[in-house]
């Protein structure tokens, strides 16, 4: 569960026509963002519903850095008002459709950053961003050998010799 702290109304100018949210990153950066932009996040939407129930405004503390948060906000701003099929709860499982061109450029970051973004997207429940990141990671390891995959993803071979030659391993290649 996120930590929620009470916020002074003067900090969050959210009573006007344009409702604003205060997001606080793990490095304690305060980022004010329009609620509408973040509506793609089911997590934020649920938080906002909670605010409305209690008639109190809060800042939302998030467990990732401002750098990552800003990337997520950039994504949400770009698709503000757009309907993305992947965000539909009834959307079909991922297919072979390519990553959107803008997403490709947006996710042209190093591996660790990509992993941070997908983690944040998962936390914020932004399905479309999780999907695009997952697809980008899948593209990174596509056609690679197992050893190359380990190197790309920064993972060690932790199979015991028995596991590596187990029947299930044999059946999976």
């Amino acid at each position: 569960m996120p930590t929620i702290v009470s916020v002074d109304d003067s900090t969050v100018p959210g009573e006007g026509s344009s409702r604003l949210l205060l997001l606080v990153s793990s490095d304690n950066k305060h980022i004010v963002v329009e609620e509408d932009i973040m509506s793609r996040s089911r997590f934020i939407s649920k938080q906002v519903e909670g605010f409305e129930a209690t008639s109190q405004r809060h800042a939302i503390l998030l467990p990732f850095s401002s750098f990552v948060l800003n990337k997520v906000i950039e994504y949400c701003s770009h698709y503000r008002g757009y309907y993305l099929l992947e965000d539909d709860p009834d959307a079909a499982p991922p297919g072979r459709s390519p990553v959107r061109e803008w997403d490709q450029e947006f996710l042209d970051v190093d591996r660790n950053m990509l992993l941070r973004i997908i983690k944040a997207a998962h936390y914020l429940e932004i399905k479309s961003l999780v999907g695009s990141c997952a697809r980008a990671i899948a593209d990174m390891i596509r056609g690679k050998t197992t050893e190359e995959m380990r190197e790309i993803l920064g993972v060690e071979n932790d199979f015991t010799p028995e596991e590596e030659h187990s029947p299930s391993s044999k059946c999976t290649g």
């Binding site: 197992t146 071979n157 199979f159 391993s169």
Partner: peptide, 9 residues
């Protein structure tokens, strides 16, 4: 894709 199951435990 099956290779991906050989990456790690």
């Amino acid at each position: 894709w099956i290779k991906a199951t050989h990456v790690c435990r």
